[in-house]
Design a protein around this nucleic acid. Structure first.
Lengths: 205, 205
DNA sequence: GCCGGTCTCCCCTTTTTCAGGGATTTTATT
DNA sequence: AATAAAATCCCTGAAAAAGGGGAGACCGGC
């Protein structure tokens, strides 16, 4: 029986590209496509494909969140993440949320079909670049607590410790402690390098 | 006579997508594709297409720089920029460097062919989102002087005014002046918001 | 030659950050 | 119940940044 493949990507050209790559492939059936998380979820209520190729960037919800939601509702649908080369920091989160594989958008037809085949058998497929990035990223990953994230956000907004303290209804000294922990975790010597690093790691927008 | 179209994009799937969109289009001839700036330039030495669809993100050189170079050497080749929705800040630079149009990667077949037709006639095509972004961006554009850029870079590195002064062989007070001007230009109240804004506007990486 | 912009330098004051500690309570997790 | 992790709070003192000025030198364009 043929494997049905569904794709979620907001870029029409990418959908077309994958369709074109897969259309003559035996054993693969085109289940359809969606350009948003919402329409993907709507489709899944009617029918479930074997594999979903899912972009990280969607207009209404991130692929990471969508992945989690889809896996919760339809655990037997396998998900393969899709992204461009410079979004590798998301791979980790995507896999944590239940994706079975990860393919970069410059993958060849062979890589794509191999990924679909492997994933259907319950295995994991990571493109070379993806698995490399995963190792790199895991090493350099920085885990922030809830409060630290909040403080970081507000620092990035340009607020002083005093202002942050008022906003969060805590003491200035507490904010200062969180700030110090942030600086330590990022190995940054001041806010400038902190914010730069945080933006690089996609922890703030 | 048919319009020959060449495409430069490092994502194989996007190339396939566009090829699939254009292949049955009368009046459009597929000239080929390249996945890097270098191979694009190599191709152009042999023959020149009428239109190049050019991605902003290339592995070896940015599309913006490639655009400038191609236009310098082959001024009669029309270039249409290609990008995803969240890279709109590059549109301005692409147009400044001689591009004739800009299309987002979620464009439909109609938009794409319309863009190619218009551009061939020497006109400009901007997708709705692109022209909107252009207006937004132009209004909010911030022009930095040579020195300000240098200081900004070093601030982002986490250096203090003192360290920057030593590095640039100027007085601390001068660095401070530049810093103040940067804050004023960005309408930022401290480095945190300055760096965030600068990263957003792609002035630093 | 003049003007605008850039780069340079200096003054002052106040605010904020940074670097060191230390310490208690809350909240999971086992 | 014990432990670990997170969140809370406090102190001191030095360093840096921010906010407010002013001012001379250089350079390119009109």
């Amino acid at each position: 029986m043929a494997t049905s493949v569904f794709i979620v990507d907001d870029h029409y050209m990418v959908i077309e590209g994958i369709r074109s790559l897969l259309q003559h492939e035996k054993g693969i059936e085109w289940a359809g496509h969606a350009q948003s998380a919402a329409s993907c979820l709507a489709y899944l209520q009617r029918e479930q494909p074997d594999v979903i190729l899912m972009d990280i960037n969607l207009p209404d919800m991130s692929g990471i969140d969508l992945c989690l939601e889809v896996k919760k509702k339809y655990p037997f649908v396998f998900i393969i993440g899709l992204s461009t080369f410079n979004q590798q920091s998301f791979i980790q989160k995507m896999m944590e949320n239940g994706a079975s594989g990860y393919v970069l958008k410059n993958a060849t037809q062979e890589e794509l079909t191999e990924a679909i085949d492997l994933v259907c058998k319950g295995k994991t497929y990571l493109s070379d670049e993806a698995s490399f990035a995963l190792r790199e990223h895991t090493a350099a990953q920085i885990i922030l607590t809830r409060r630290e994230k909040e403080v970081l956000e507000l620092i990035a907004e340009g607020m002083t410790n005093n202002e942050i303290a008022k906003q969060l209804f805590i003491s200035v000294t507490t904010v200062d402690t969180h700030r110090k922990n942030l600086l330590a975790k990022f190995e940054a010597k001041n806010v400038a390098s902190l914010i730069r690093a945080a933006v690089k790691m996609q922890l703030i927008k």
